[in-house]
Amino acid sequence: MTAICIANNKGGVGKTTTVVNLAAGLARLGHSVLVVDADGQSNATYALTGSVHPTPSLYDLLMDTAKFDQALWTTNEEHIWLIPGDGRLQNIDVELAAKPGREWRLTRALNGQSFDYILIDTPPSLGVVTQNALVAAQHVIVPVALSEFSLIGMDKLLSTIDELSDQLDIDDLDLLGIVVTFYEENRLGRETFGVLEKKFEGQLFETHIPKHNKIEEAHRRNESVLTFAPTSPGGLAYAELAREVKKRATSTGEAYSRRRVARG
């Protein structure tokens, strides 16, 4: 089992799209995948089930009002299960503010589960829900839309994740890689990609996800692009990304088990 958090505090960079399609890619490689939708906009939930206000959801899990099995959904994709998100997650920071161990609630809920991969979709913020996701994960994937705006703030994001790891006593969280999304094969695209490659040498995934309408269309049909259009540029890219992720983050085959490290 390996848990991967897909995070970027900038919105619209392809976090949800990456979660849904990477999950489908890993499932096609024969793995069982659990998607945890920690975004209050619940777009991953919609893309995988067609539902927008499911309950019980991750909110209930974090608030201790539901058990893991009660919040577990099957999805439209084979071998992919889901802990759905819903709108109440947007206000949960306030509700969890005074609760002890609030950053460890997702970890506690996942302990003992035996999926090969757990992919956690996060909201575009670094609030309590994202902190729960970072604590629960062993790896982070940062999707970056290939635009000038996305490059601004990348340093800040990575140093913030570093700081959070320190604050939350997480010793083993690592950056699995940065995946470029919305890639367009033109001069501007190549130039911007060049800047990223220079800056984050060795941290970029070799696969980059093209800007392609089939990816968006698949969401509208409530399925992954690998189901809807597996041979489209988007489908092929996500299948390749799954192989790359598998190579970098080999699943241990053991049940999820993560404990807080006691510091002396």
Binding site: Y46, T49, S51, V52, H53, P54, T74, T75, N76
Partner: peptide, 11 residues
């Protein structure tokens, strides 16, 4: 609106 929750969890 999405599908209703009355359809149950999942498929």
């Amino acid at each position: 609106p999405g599908r209703g929750t009355e359809l149950g969890q999942g498929v």
